[in-house]
Simulated assay, not measured.
Amino acid sequence: MAVEDQYQEIFQDVKAKVEKAKAEQNCTQNDSHCLFFDEKYVNVIENEVPKPQVCSIIEPAYKEFFVETITSDGLTCMSFCDPSYAQPKSCNDGKCVIQRDVGPQCLCPETDIFMYTGASCTGKISKAGVYAGVGVSLAVLFIVIITVSFYLVREKRKKNKDDFFRDSEDLWSHDTDDQWTAQNGIFNLNLNIDSD
């Protein structure tokens, strides 16, 4: 909450309590046990509060990410990363930093061995696990591709071999001529055969 808003809240609270106390007390000027509010002496007046200059030392590029706040220590300049801020930036295990012209950002720890799915250092995932998972998946995919390719080539060769033998069988038993001639048939060279 900004300082001006806090001042207005405190001012209205004090004003209401003074008005309530004035209305509830039945004191006379001689009563020593109660507070006496006489309008001549007690008047609540709202004054202009000068704009605090606590955050004036902050560079202009960072200024919009800081706010002046009243704490138990007094008036202070607080960043959106400060855990005492009303709604601080949560970075879980990470560290909140204010970056120039960007604002509060989380710097996550151990980014050399982990990656995070969220900007607030949420969803911590081991890089080694991701790399191992991707490597195993690629190896399995490679083995499946090699196995399928092997079986496809084997089946194609078997089919081609079967087609070759089937075509060969068909060719030797079929002749284009319906009659056999000496060139196409068996020739007997034994001339000593009696012709009875």
Rank of each mutant, 00 (worst) to 15 (best):
T111I: 03
E9H: 11
G133H: 01
N92L: 06
S173T: 13
V134M: 03
Q8S: 14
E24Y: 08
L75N: 03
Q105A: 08
L141W: 09
C55D: 06
G94I: 02
L107C: 03
D73T: 11
K22V: 15
S32C: 10
V97D: 02
E39D: 15
E64M: 07
G133F: 00
K17S: 14
D167H: 13
D31Q: 06
D162M: 12
K156T: 14
I98K: 00
T181S: 15
K63I: 04
N47K: 05
I143T: 07
V44S: 08
A2R: 08
S72H: 06
I58G: 10
P60M: 00
V148W: 05
G74H: 02
P52R: 00
V136C: 05
L35M: 11
N43T: 15
V134I: 11
Y7C: 09
K127A: 04
K89H: 04
Q8V: 12
P50I: 04
K89D: 03
N184V: 08
C121K: 00
D177N: 15
K156N: 11
L75F: 04
E169A: 14
G103V: 03
V144F: 08
I98W: 00
T122H: 02
T147C: 03
Q6V: 11
A86Y: 04
Q6P: 07
K161R: 11
K40R: 14
E46H: 12
I143A: 12
E68R: 01
Y62E: 07
D112K: 01
D38N: 14
I125T: 10
G129P: 04
A119W: 00
D31H: 07
W180A: 12
G118L: 01
Q12S: 15
D13Q: 08
K51Y: 10
Q183G: 15
D194W: 06
V97I: 12
V42S: 09
N190Y: 12
D167K: 10
M1W: 05
I146S: 05
K95S: 13
T28S: 10
A16M: 10
N184F: 01
K20S: 12
I186P: 13
S79K: 01
C77P: 06
R100I: 08
E68T: 13
Q99V: 11
D196H: 10
N30D: 15
F187L: 09
T122R: 00
R100Y: 04
T176S: 10
E155Y: 09
S173D: 09
D196Q: 08
F150M: 04
F65N: 01
E59K: 06
L171K: 12
S149M: 05
P52V: 08
L107N: 07
T76E: 11
Q105K: 08
V153C: 06
K95L: 08
D5S: 14
C81H: 01
V153M: 06
A16R: 09
Q99T: 11
V18E: 04
K22E: 13
